[in-house]
Write a protein that binds this DNA or RNA. Sequence first.
DNA 1: GTGGTCTAGACCACG
DNA 2: GTGGTCTAGACCACA
Lengths: 128, 128, 128, 128
Amino acid sequence: MDASIFAIQPTSAEPIYRQIVEQLRRLIAGGQLSPGELLPSVREVAGFHAVNPMTVSRAYGIAESEGLLERLRGKGMAIAAGAGRASTPAQRLALLEPQLADVARQARELELPAESVLRRLGKLMGER
Amino acid sequence: MDASIFAIQPTSAEPIYRQIVEQLRRLIAGGQLSPGELLPSVREVAGFHAVNPMTVSRAYGIAESEGLLERLRGKGMAIAAGAGRASTPAQRLALLEPQLADVARQARELELPAESVLRRLGKLMGER
Amino acid sequence: MDASIFAIQPTSAEPIYRQIVEQLRRLIAGGQLSPGELLPSVREVAGFHAVNPMTVSRAYGIAESEGLLERLRGKGMAIAAGAGRASTPAQRLALLEPQLADVARQARELELPAESVLRRLGKLMGER
Amino acid sequence: MDASIFAIQPTSAEPIYRQIVEQLRRLIAGGQLSPGELLPSVREVAGFHAVNPMTVSRAYGIAESEGLLERLRGKGMAIAAGAGRASTPAQRLALLEPQLADVARQARELELPAESVLRRLGKLMGER
DNA sequence: GTGGTCTAGACCACG
DNA sequence: GTGGTCTAGACCACA
């Protein structure tokens, strides 16, 4: 698989290894990564995104301990059997809830009309 | 002014001092805090929210160095004269842009239909 | 607290960071470490046992993610509130079950009489 | 001989090849495998336990280099002539010593009374 | 080829 | 003072 499945922002406040874990969580819940699928190797990801292999390894290790990934001896890491797509859209929406609540609070602090926020977000989601 | 203007989440990954600075920035841009208005003292905020006074002091210091606040000798900190409400809604919306872009990306990763995200966010912004 | 609470064997096949996590788990379950108690700092433990601070930090981080420890900002790591002593001896014995099953199997493979194994283990547990 | 003499746990932390070597060591010391006896072929074991043939081959190779096995040209691997049953129970018990010491230490960390540990282990050794 | 562990050392964030 | 993140690089274990 392509190492480009991950979108890493090295300058973000969120640590790189956690960016990877979170994206894994969402890509699996969303069904873009399916159980059994083999992930790009630690070295591939590290090389492609120019980060240290240990950073990627750390992310994979955490994802494994959370039951998202499983280690296939000698072959690499794969999406765990028990980690399939979250069945209902409601379950997937729940993963976004904290961020949405945050945006809502910030919009209130900015005294922004709800419509303008929704219009802008709709535009951002419409684009690819 | 009341120390309760700040909504502090001590368990959040975002450091407390930055929560305060960011909220100040938005409350000023949104016009809920007006130039000249006096802020609650470091002690008040620290006591009310059970955080270290140094943390609050640090936040005020950063806000001052950014021109959001100014120190009134003997009276405390106040909203700076040059820090009024952002004139246009577009300018205020720009402060929310990064978070919106983030939500859009995460929604794509979760393969969530745009409508369901907008509906949920609209509901959250409607509530008080 | 003393950094000597941990018994680290650098030559063991079990990685150092996991030795620490496992010992924490047992010392907490056994009640020798109580909720709220402050752990020795990463640097203390690393210095005392002559291992890299990151190795200790990794152990603490895993223990935190398992709910055994909690981070006290600026003060260090403490035994988590929800991680008290396993109430019944049966619960604590359960943590030893896999090792006991392993010993039993190996004793069978060695065709050792149960009594001699029990006598030897009893002696080892009697000593301090 | 049957490939089922080995009890392989693919999920264990102990590497598979070492599980095989250790079991060979104990089964020979215990007298369940006698000098001259022919082992199941690499393919049989690998097929039966669904592990990589290279893993089994590696285990046999290590056991051979330790003098536990010897290669009979055209016939396979057999228990080495000089690798008979450990004569005294004390010698065989010595092979279990490290595991026993480990259990004793862990029982102390769990603050478990010696009797309950011995009772449980006795029960496990009594069962077949 | 795969991932895992550890080190030495730098730098940051928080209080 | 506390822990967290990342790097560069060595070495090991497994298949």
